[in-house]
C-alpha cells in the first residue's frame, strides 16, 4: 500500500507541510525533510519551483523565485532526493505546476518519482479531465497518487467525479483565494468543511490555504482528516532557518 494511503488510515488528524525546494538555500531540501519528519509532521509536500505560480500568493511566489535563482531545476531536485528513502519513511508528495513536468516528460517524471519513493503528486493546473484521459494510467503504473483540489465553488457533481478518480485524499481549498491569504476561518468556511464532510466521500479531505497556526489547524481539522501549511511555514523558515523547524511544528501540534 502506498505510504499516503497507509498514513490516512491512522486514527489522528494529519499535519502536512509544504515547502519550496531550493529555498532558503539550494541544498536545504533533504535536511528540511528530515527535520519535518523528526518534528512529528505526517506528510510533506515538496514544491517544485515554477516561474509563474498562478495559484500562489506572495510568500510562495517569493520562495519559488528565490529557489530558481539559487539554481533549482527538476534534475537537481531529483538528484537531491535520490537517497531520501534511506533516511525518512514519511509520505512525500511533489507539488508543482504542469509545464516543468511536461518538459521533463510526464512518463519520465513519474518513473523517477517511483524510483525515488515519491508517493503522490499535486499539479494544480493539470485539469481533471486531461489527467483522466491522458495520464491516469501512467501515474498508476508508477504507483503515484494524484491529488485534486476542490474549492467552495466546486459543484457537487464535480466533487463526486473527482472523488471517483482519486485514490488518496482530496485537497480541500479553504476559501476562494491564492495561498497565504486570510487569517482565521469564519462560519462560512466551517459550514463548507462540514458540508463536504457530510458527503461521505470515499477519499478523506485535507484542508489547505489559510492555515497558519494551532487555532486554524484545529478549526480546519474539526471536519477534515488533516490540514496543510505552506506560507506560514515558509515565513518561519525564512526567519529562523532549518534548525528551528521543530519550534514551528510544536506551535501547531501543541
Amino acid at each position: 500500500m502506498n505510504r499516503i494511503q497507509q498514513k490516512l488510515k491512522e486514527d489522528k488528524k494529519l499535519l502536512s507541510i509544504y515547502f519550496s525546494a531550493g529555498y532558503p538555500n539550494l541544498n536545504d531540501t533533504v535536511s528540511i525533510i528530515q527535520n519535518l519528519e523528526k518534528s512529528g509532521v505526517d506528510m510533506i509536500e515538496i514544491g517544485l519551483p515554477f516561474s509563474d505560480p498562478l495559484a500562489d500568493g506572495p510568500t510562495i511566489q517569493a520562495s519559488s523565485t528565490q529557489a530558481l535563482k539559487n539554481g533549482m531545476t527538476t534534475e537537481i531536485l531529483f538528484n537531491q532526493l535520490k537517497d531520501i528513502r534511506k533516511s525518512v519513511s514519511i509520505p512525500l508528495i511533489i507539488m508543482g505546476y504542469f509545464n516543468p513536468i511536461l518538459q521533463y516528460g510526464v512518463e519520465a517524471f513519474c518513473k523517477t518519482c517511483q524510483e525515488i519513493g515519491i508517493d503522490g503528486l499535486i499539479i494544480p493546473d493539470l485539469p481533471v479531465d486531461v489527467y483522466n484521459e491522458q495520464y491516469k494510467a501512467t501515474f498508476e503504473k508508477h504507483g503515484l497518487i494524484n491529488v485534486f483540489l476542490i474549492t467552495p465553488q466546486t459543484s457537487v457533481d464535480r466533487i463526486n467525479f473527482i472523488d471517483s478518480i482519486s485514490n488518496g485524499f482530496i485537497y480541500m481549498v479553504s476559501s476562494a483565494s491564492v495561498t497565504g491569504s486570510n487569517s482565521g476561518f469564519g462560519d462560512e468556511q466551517t459550514a463548507y468543511f462540514k458540508r463536504i464532510s457530510d458527503m461521505h466521500l470515499k477519499n478523506p479531505q485535507i484542508v489547505g490555504f489559510g492555515i497558519s497556526n494551532n487555532e486554524t489547524f484545529t478549526q480546519a481539522t474539526q471536519h477534515a482528516k488533516g490540514a496543510i501549511i505552506g506560507s506560514a511555514f515558509i515565513k518561519h523558515l525564512s526567519q529562523f532557518g532549518v534548525s528551528k523547524i521543530s519550534d514551528f511544528v510544536n506551535t501547531i501540534l501543541r
Partner: peptide, 11 residues
C-alpha cells in the same frame, strides 16, 4: 489550447 487552470478558476 485547452484550459490548464487551477481548480479555483474552474467555476
Amino acid at each position: 489550447g485547452g484550459a490548464y487552470i487551477p481548480e479555483m478558476l474552474y467555476p
